[in-house]
Design a protein around this nucleic acid. Structure first.
Length: 204
DNA sequence: CCACGGATTGGCT
DNA sequence: GCCAATCCGTGGA
C-alpha cells in the first residue's frame, strides 16, 4: 500500500540547516511515530518557522529556560510544549547548536493509523469523510491524533520512535507563504508555509 | 508565593 | 465571528 513509507529517514544534516530552509524542505515529507504497537504516519502540509535570535514570537526570544532548552540543541530533536491549558504542539529543532530555532508542525495529511488517530481525537472510529479532514488539521489536533505529549519532548528524530521520511521536494510554485497564525508579536514575518490546495491545511 | 498570558480548539451567537 | 476553557511556564514580589 505504501511506497511513500519505503524511503530512508532524514538524517542529522537535513535538520542542521537554517530554520527557513528546513521549514520549506519539510513540506511533503512523512512524519512517522511508532509506539505501543501503533504506527502513525502523515504527510507534512503546513509549518511555521520560529527564530529566537530576533523573532519575538519564538519561545527562545527570552533566552534559554528549562522549557525551551531543547530548542538550543543542534537540529533534529523534538520540542513539545503545552499551551492554553489543553493542547500540545510539536516542533522540529533546526540549525546548529546554541541557536534557538525550530519549525512548528501545524498540519499533516493522515496516511497510516487513521482509525487509531480517530480514537485518540474523538474517542470513536471515523464516522464520515468530514471527520477525516478534521483529524490533523491544526497543531494541537495533530498532536492529539498522533498521541504526542510532554514525554516526547527532546526525542531524537534520528532514532526509531519518531522520525521523518525523505520524499521528493515540493516545487516552489506549490508552496504558499503567509504570515503566522495565533501570535501577537513579530506578526509581519512571512514564515508560515503550506502546500497549495491541500485540504488538510488548518486554514487559508 | 502569586499573577498573568499563551505558536489552540470547539461550541455558541 | 466571538469567546470560554484550562493549566503550566515564567517572572516579579
Amino acid at each position: 500500500m505504501n511506497s511513500l513509507l519505503n524511503q530512508p529517514k532524514l538524517k542529522r544534516n537535513f535538520f542542521t540547516l537554517d530554520v527557513l530552509t528546513v521549514a520549506q524542505s519539510l513540506l511533503g515529507k512523512i512524519l512517522v511515530k511508532k509506539s505501543d504497537g501503533n504506527t502513525y504516519a502523515g504527510k507534512i502540509v503546513e509549518v511555521e518557522a520560529y527564530d529566537g535570535t530576533f523573532d519575538e514570537a519564538a519561545h527562545t526570544f527570552i533566552g534559554k529556560t528549562k522549557r525551551n532548552e531543547i530548542m538550543f540543541a543542534e537540529g533534529g530533536f523534538f520540542y513539545v510544549y503545552f499551551t492554553y491549558g489543553a493542547h500540545f504542539c510539536c516542533n522540529i529543532v533546526t540549525g546548529v547548536k546554541d541557536i534557538g530555532t525550530a519549525v512548528l508542525l501545524r498540519a499533516v495529511e493522515p496516511l497510516i493509523g487513521i482509525e487509531e488517530m480517530a480514537i485518540n481525537r474523538f474517542g470513536h472510529h471515523l464516522l464520515n469523510e468530514k471527520e477525516k479532514f478534521n483529524l490533523t488539521s491544526g497543531p494541537g489536533k495533530l498532536c492529539k491524533a498522533f498521541d504526542i505529549n510532554k514525554k516526547h519532548n527532546t526525542t531524537d528524530l534520528t532514532g526509531n520512535e519518531i522520525f521523518i521520511l525523505k520524499q521528493r521536494k515540493i516545487s516552489a510554485d506549490k508552496i504558499v507563504i503567509t504570515k503566522r497564525i495565533g501570535i501577537k508579536k513579530s506578526v509581519e514575518l512571512p514564515w508560515r508555509f503550506y502546500i497549495k490546495n491541500n485540504p488538510y491545511v488548518s486554514r487559508k
